[in-house]
Design a binder for these strands. Structure first.
Lengths: 292, 292
DNA sequence: ATATTTATCTGACTAAAGTCAGATATAATG
DNA sequence: CATTATATCTGACTTTAGTCAGATAAATAT
């Protein structure tokens, strides 16, 4: 018996396959084939567009059609043509379908809950799961503009502040920093972007504007799980695009010596170090970039 | 979008399912249905007994029979009746079957390798995978007697010594401790047990004897991943059984104040604190237990 | 206006997976 | 010894999954 990395990976794979397989078996217990259950779940998760469902589940159009017909015959869903495009169709759960979907959710939830609550340290297990899922979803991180007061944004900011408090020698207190007002990071003055990996926020960046041609980049953060994947660079590129769309021509930012990877990121991506431009107590370095 | 524990578990589950599904697709690429491939792999892993294969893969006996017949027709396996029981049959790979099995192994290995080497920190990923797999295999930890010089035993001991070096204020050097000779932990003088979770060692304990009625318990270790699951108690019960089987009637052990959980374990399980019985520089506490 | 593309549906398939009731031979039990 | 249990096999199914070639109707391009 060896303990090299490949056999460890495969041990993990066996363990998880067994766990996931058991859930599939319990899904079968509701007397519906797995294919139908998967379609019902996709619709319950809000995928109403049939082309979307087909792409998500990787199904043939004929098969999809028949599965939908089956769910319709059971009275679990209703379909109608898409309001904007007469070729497409959209599906929706009926009340009975909603009840059935909830039953499936319940099965998933109890499977998850039973596993997590049986473990002496559920938080550590969840952290390990986030880490692995983020690694597996690496190619599929989306960057979305959100309101800086949304759940996802606040989740990121809380982790960002925690990290500053840990890494700055002098600690960190938001109140002492030049905290941009949320309204400065909302169009038309600015923007706030969150990187999502299958729904979990793994990074953020803010753009603070005053209505003029000068903007300031704030709150760049990448989750520890997602570091080393070029996400910081992607977020910076995305926020520059936002700035251009708001007709800005110059961006500024500040950073602290306790964050050397950020300093490197700015240096490598066309930013120039400039003189101090504010009296915030935390930053040590100041950068500027002209947008073309 | 919420970030509660259930949705994090399910995000993990989705990510892994997709990864596993991709591997299944690549298996299909070898032109054999998944069912046959799974049986071939089970045989290649050394499951020769057909009843065992059936139980492992959860298949109907008729289906198993047909899948085996198919592999036999392809010239990949041979079956013959079990030497000890004329009703049972055993399967074995032919050279062609071995080659085919190796091709499947190659697919798994490259999938694992591609994933691990694409990540900036493969060691952290593997640690997280071990942690999760151990948690999922919790109910399936076996305790086996092994030679203390075997790979599994040395793996455990190396981690045990590392941990002592980290936790003892004064550090730890095996050479200074009363290191029992390996021959004292092998029958008929003693024993060495390793706890395996699907092949990965997650704990150990040694029994050092001198041929008489007195034995000494040494090297009790439980992997951090497996703590909180009662494995320490199971290992201690198993080593007591070994001692009884060797006709011992009294066991002793020593421990250090830097290992309070061990102290508690002995206190809770029928051990009595006694006076120092050796001049090893490391231990602070000494225990004895009479076996009934 | 006509031609082409796109999204979905239908019918006619095939392949794979799974079920079930015997049949057969061996092993274990009283 | 007869009886019962066990392991496997075979034949005759059903269900599920997946494929493919049109048909239909709406959208888009020329």
């Amino acid at each position: 018996m060896e303990h090299d990395s490949i056999s460890r990976y495969r041990r993990f794979s066996r363990a998880v396959t067994r766990q996931v397989g058991a859930l599939d078996q319990s899904f079968l217990g509701r007397g519906r084939p797995l294919g139908s259950a998967r379609v019902l779940n996709a619709i319950g998760q809000g995928r109403c567009d049939i082309a979307d469902i087909r792409a998500y589940l990787g199904l043939d159009s004929g098969l999809t059609s028949r599965l939908l017909r089956g769910l319709e015959d059971e009275g679990l869903i209703e379909t109608r043509t898409h309001p904007d495009d007469g070729r497409r169709r959209v599906a929706e759960l009926t009340p009975a379908g909603r009840a059935e979907f909830d039953a499936y959710e319940e099965l998933s939830d109890t499977a998850a809950d039973r596993f997590l609550s049986a473990h002496p340290d559920p938080d550590a297990i969840l952290a390990a799961m986030d880490f692995i899922a983020t690694a597996m979803n690496r190619h599929a991180v989306t960057i979305d503009r959100v309101d800086p007061t949304s759940t996802a944004a606040r989740y990121c900011l809380a982790r960002y502040y925690d990290e500053l408090a840990r890494r700055f020698e002098e600690g960190f207190d938001v109140a002492l920093s030049c905290d941009p007002d949320a309204s400065d990071m909302v169009p038309p003055r600015g923007a706030f972007l969150v990187a999502l990996s299958d729904g979990l926020p793994v990074g953020c960046v803010g753009l603070k504007g005053n209505g003029g041609k000068l903007g300031e980049v704030k709150r760049l953060w990448v989750a520890p799980d997602a570091r080393g994947t070029g996400l910081g660079k992607r977020l910076m590129a995305a926020i520059e695009d936002e700035a251009r769309a708001l007709s800005m021509d110059t961006l500024r930012l500040d950073t602290n010596r306790a964050l050397p990877e950020a300093y490197e990121l700015y240096n490598r991506n066309g930013w120039t170090e400039i003189d101090r431009f504010n009296d915030d107590p935390y930053p040590d370095f100041f950068f500027e970039k002209r947008l073309v």
